[in-house]
């Protein structure tokens, strides 16, 4: 696979080249420090040097709302809503958001492979860009470096004067055909960035830490601050829990069944008919969410379900940091180990 220099001046032409092939989705500025993925209409508006987008590209494969069925109430006839592959080029995706998509792929394909999600995922091309971690990114702690190319077809490594473009897959190489403003790159691809935020344990250890953390007082302490709004769920690129609701049209003759993203932080999430709520305490809901990111799925799937993007911490209305929670669990675990070790030494003496 080849690598090329792509100067800052050539980036616009490169985007125009991509736009001739397929619909391109890329980051755009929304406000001074907000970015969103949108369909590219004008290559000039694309911003590849961004911190993070408000939402991840999850929204294209698992829309926050989608119609599952349409029905006619007069004769009980109903039909399934057709789902089309997105068939886009996703440009400027950060490695943690790519990893989040790979995690969603796992969630929607194991057990019952879900048509809606998996169909949208067909025939897409992903072009990554490296990022400079801010105070909130901690993806290196969950084994996702800014230059991780897994899942991408092409990868744009940021350099001082532009990018080094790495071909990762054959699809990526094919995409480069017809674009000739390139000089070949020989050498090592850049592969490290400095992170300011860290989890103090690798996943192998986290799994053990979480085995011991179920009754940690931290869940109740965080519940004193948390307002249970569910923003962390909405911001999370690997959260996919959903609810399904029916909407009847004003005519009262037809309607649709829609699914929308739901939030395990909301009290009603586990409520059943009759009023029983199975995770009534906020502390239990906080624990459930954090365990879902580091233990419940990770134990069988092999990687943490948190990708270290930092969104849940930035957008938390109460200023709660998932990094602080996990590090507190790690430090409590370590203290306990030290006590156990010294007990053992004492017993030995």
């Amino acid at each position: 696979m080849n690598g090329y220099y792509l100067s800052q001046e050539n980036v616009k032409d490169f985007i125009s080249h991509l736009m001739k092939k397929k619909t391109v989705y890329a980051p755009h500025a929304k406000a001074d420090h907000s970015f969103v993925f949108e369909e590219v209409v004008d290559a000039d508006n694309v911003i590849l040097d961004y911190v993070r987008t408000l939402n991840s590209i999850k929204k294209y494969f698992m829309p926050s709302r989608e119609v599952m069925l349409r029905y006619n109430l007069d004769d009980n006839s109903y039909s399934i809503e057709d789902v089309e592959p997105v068939k886009g080029i996703f440009l400027g995706v950060h490695s943690y958001d790519m990893q989040a998509v790979l995690r969603l792929d796992h969630s929607f394909s194991h057990g019952n492979p879900e048509k809606n999600y998996l169909t949208r995922r067909l025939d897409n091309i992903f072009i990554g860009t490296s990022f400079t971690p801010d105070n909130f990114h901690f993806s290196s702690s969950v084994n996702i470096q800014p230059h991780k190319t897994e899942g991408f077809d092409l990868f744009m490594h940021k350099t001082d004067r532009g990018y080094v473009l790495e071909e990762v897959t054959k699809t990526g190489s094919d995409l480069m055909k017809g674009f000739d403003q390139l000089t070949k790159f020989h050498g090592e691809y850049p592969n490290s960035e400095h992170f300011k935020s860290h989890l103090y344990a690798p996943q192998e250890k986290l799994s053990k830490v979480f085995e011991e953390s179920y009754d940690n007082p931290v869940w109740h302490e965080i519940a004193q601050k948390c307002v249970g709004c569910g923003t962390c769920n909405l911001a999370c690129p690997t959260c996919y829990c959903f609810d399904v609701e029916d909407h009847v049209d004003l005519s009262l003759q037809s309607g649709s069944r829609e699914r929308r993203l739901d939030s395990c932080m909301l009290r009603g999430f586990t409520e059943v008919a009759g009023g029983e709520v199975f995770r009534d305490r906020l502390a239990d809901r906080i624990r459930h969410r954090v365990y879902r990111k580091f233990k419940y799925i990770s134990d069988s799937a092999g990687e943490p379900w948190c990708v270290g993007c930092g969104r849940c911490t930035i957008y938390c209305t109460a200023g709660i940091s998932i990094v602080d929670i996990v590090n507190r669990l790690v430090s409590d675990y370590d203290k306990k180990q030290i006590v156990q070790d010294s007990d053992m030494i004492a017993a030995w003496d």
């Binding site: 599952m68 069925l69 399934i80 990893q99 790979l102 995690r103 792929d105 796992h106 394909s109 194991h110 019952n112 492979p113 879900e114 048509k115 809606n116 998996l118 169909t119 067909l122 897994e150 399904v244 069944r257 699914r259 069988s300 799937a301 092999g302 990687e303």
Partner: peptide
């Protein structure tokens, strides 16, 4: 690495 499951489109399930 995440344990991925490769599924052909003909095996996607209409679940709902």
């Amino acid at each position: 690495m995440i344990k991925t499951v490769n599924i052909k489109p003909e095996n996607f399930k209409e679940l709902y």
